[in-house]
C-alpha cells in the first residue's frame, strides 16, 4: 500500500513548525542575556540589587580606626548604641577618611531627643532631665564627654 499523507496534515505540520519557530525566535530575543548565569533567574539582577548607593558603613568599619572611642563607650549604658546612631550614615567618611564627611552632633536638642523628660519613658532605663531648667543656655558637651556622658568633666 502506498503511503498517503493527507494534505491537511502536512499543511498543519508546516503551520505548527512556523508557530514553534516564531516562539523560539521570540524567546531568543526576549530572554534576558544573563538569564541562567547563576541559577534560574536573571544574573544581572544581582548587579541591579547591588546598585543602590551605600550610606551606612556599619559599626565594624568605624572600629577599624576608632577602637579607642569604642572602648570608652563600652564602659557604660551607651555601649549598645552604634556609632551611626548619633553620627549618621558614615560610608562617605569611611571612604574619604575626612572629618568633614561625618556628622558631629552638638547642641542641647540633640541629647534631648533621648534624654528630655517624658512620663512615658521608664526612669530606670533612661536618664531623663528637664531641658528647660537644667543649665539653660549651656551645651551638654561642655560638662559631659559625648562618648562617656555618664561622667561629668572636672
Amino acid at each position: 500500500m502506498k503511503f498517503y499523507l493527507p494534505p491537511q496534515i502536512s499543511r498543519l505540520a508546516i503551520a505548527f513548525a512556523v508557530f514553534i519557530t516564531l516562539f523560539l525566535v521570540a524567546r531568543h530575543f526576549l530572554v534576558p542575556e544573563t538569564f541562567g548565569q547563576y541559577g534560574h533567574y536573571r544574573g544581572a539582577s544581582l548587579d541591579d540589587n547591588a546598585m543602590p548607593v551605600i550610606h551606612f558603613s556599619g559599626q565594624q568599619a568605624c572600629l577599624d580606626c576608632h577602637q579607642d572611642i569604642e572602648d570608652l563607650k563600652l564602659q557604660g549604658p551607651h555601649k549598645g548604641i552604634h556609632c551611626e546612631t548619633c553620627h549618621g550614615p558614615g560610608q562617605a567618611h569611611v571612604v574619604s577618611g575626612e572629618a568633614k564627611d561625618i556628622f558631629k552632633p552638638s547642641g542641647r536638642e540633640f541629647c534631648g531627643n533621648c534624654h528630655s523628660s517624658n512620663a512615658a519613658k521608664k526612669k530606670e532605663t533612661i536618664h531623663q532631665v528637664n531641658m528647660s531648667t537644667k543649665n539653660p543656655g549651656k551645651n551638654c558637651t561642655e560638662c559631659h564627654n559625648p562618648h562617656q556622658p555618664w561622667k561629668v568633666k572636672k
Partner: peptide, 18 residues
C-alpha cells in the same frame, strides 16, 4: 483553511478521523 482546498471524500474522511 491554510490553503488546503482538497475536499475529496478521502481527505474529508481524514478530517473526521483526525
Amino acid at each position: 483553511c491554510l490553503g488546503v482546498t482538497d475536499i475529496s471524500p478521502r481527505t474529508l474522511s481524514w478530517d473526521k478521523k483526525l
